[in-house]
Amino acid sequence: MKMKALLLASALTATMISSAPAMAARDYISIVGSSTVYPFATVVAEQYGKSTSFKTPKIESTGSGGGFKLFCSGVGVEFPDITNASRAIKSSEVETCAKNGVKDIVEVKIGYDGIVIANAKQGEPLKLTRQEIYLALAKEVPDPKNPDKLIANPYINWSDINSSLPNTKIEVLGPPPTSGTRDAFVELVMDEGAKSFEFIKKMDKKEFARVAQTVREDGAYVEAGENDNLIVQKLQANPAALGIFGFSFLDQNSDVIQGSIVEEQAPTFENIADGKYSVSRPLFFYVKKAHVDVIPGIKEYLGEFSSEKAWGEEGYLADKGMIPMPEAERAQYAEAVKNLKTM
């Protein structure tokens, strides 16, 4: 008898749930997008949630590409209002958006993120150039004996590339191809390093991309997963290894790891903010203008994000490791936010 009651109760619950109105007006902001922007956007969201009467926005970490895909799938409560990105929107994505009726998009640049190449404090501090990094990590590199020919990467130790570098094995822990950090690293370091060889620079676009962006697969580059904390821990365990990750992780773990100097510049807050450190990228978010007056609180969220106490030089985002934009740029984007200037 008890069994029957149990079955009945479960069945009842099931019907109750399935008949509940699935769609209701959404009263919170839905944000998707880049995992790089995620740690910053969440701080803003939390601050906003606590200091206003609105609900705290929901932020999903989907990666920049995944974010645009969701963002561009349409207008309506079931689609996100804002997407974060660690790169600018592509024209193909703008087209997809337009096709699905997402026409008025507000682009907001929020600051910069540096990508650092770091090792443990016990290890030797490194001074690298982008060319050296390219030579250390590319699958095919110019033959040192015959500089116009490509050969499979022969370098085993750093000192094989440049005798002033330490005589330790090349071992780099970095993000997998799905990560935005990897995209930025390839674009900012590998491409530039490859360009330093004239004959590679002259290659056609496709061939160049293949040569410059294919990372070696013989164990020198280890894909360490999306978890940057894990890379930091592995670096501590293995002082000879280098790791590639976002600046905020260096900032938070400065007592145990050190950033390598790239192109004569150390990865410090100031150097990235000044644009001296070459491996940095802008961070963005994109707002669906059609949602602004439908979903409560979007304007206030944008106001919180573009306030000086958030993205300013002394703001709390800087505390979290985001590199602020120069004052003029901040003013320009704050203005764009205020007027909801579309692209």
């Binding site: 209701a24 839905s30 949630g49 705290t56």
Partner: peptide, 17 residues
């Protein structure tokens, strides 16, 4: 399905994020 998200507010029902 988007449950890997930053959610501060404690959900009050099955339809809250």
């Amino acid at each position: 399905i988007g449950m890997i998200a930053f959610i501060v507010d404690i959900p009050g029902s099955v339809t809250d994020p």
